[in-house]
């Protein structure tokens, strides 16, 4: 049984076809890797936006905290003012004991005279 002699033209065409197929396959793989890079950008964008949102929330919280601290401060000032006012009243009382009445401003003048 004799085998047919190989056709060189046909073998060359077959080789070229296989090479073209392989190149096309590799190009597809390369493009998929490129697309994976694009997907990583989209994921990174989502992560950065999340971070931005978190930071904005934290900043807003810190700002509201400052406002609350400001309110506390003002109430502290109110309390301090109240204490000072009470002191004034106490000194008024002492002055009135010594000088038998009169305002706290006029009391020393009265006692000197």
């Amino acid at each position: 049984m004799s085998t047919a002699p190989p056709d060189p033209e046909r073998a060359r065409a077959e080789g070229a076809r296989r090479l073209a197929e392989m190149k096309a396959r590799l190009r597809r793989i390369r493009n998929r890797a490129l697309a994976a890079g694009g997907a990583s950008f989209v994921l990174a964008l989502a992560a950065v936006l999340y971070q931005q949102h978190e930071d904005a929330g934290r900043t807003a919280q810190a700002a509201s905290g400052q406002v609350e601290a400001g309110t506390d401060e003002s109430s502290w000032i109110d309390q301090a003012t109240q204490v000072l006012s009470d002191d004034d009243h106490e000194s008024d009382g002492q002055a009135s004991d010594d000088d038998s009445g009169g305002s706290s401003i006029s009391a020393p003048t009265t006692s000197v005279s």
Partner: peptide
């Protein structure tokens, strides 16, 4: 190896595009 080389090339091109952006 040829496939890995294609992946390497695709990722390298994506890197350059991302750096440019």
């Amino acid at each position: 190896t040829a496939e890995l080389r294609a992946i390497h090339e695709g990722l390298a091109l994506a890197t350059l595009a991302a750096i440019a952006l």
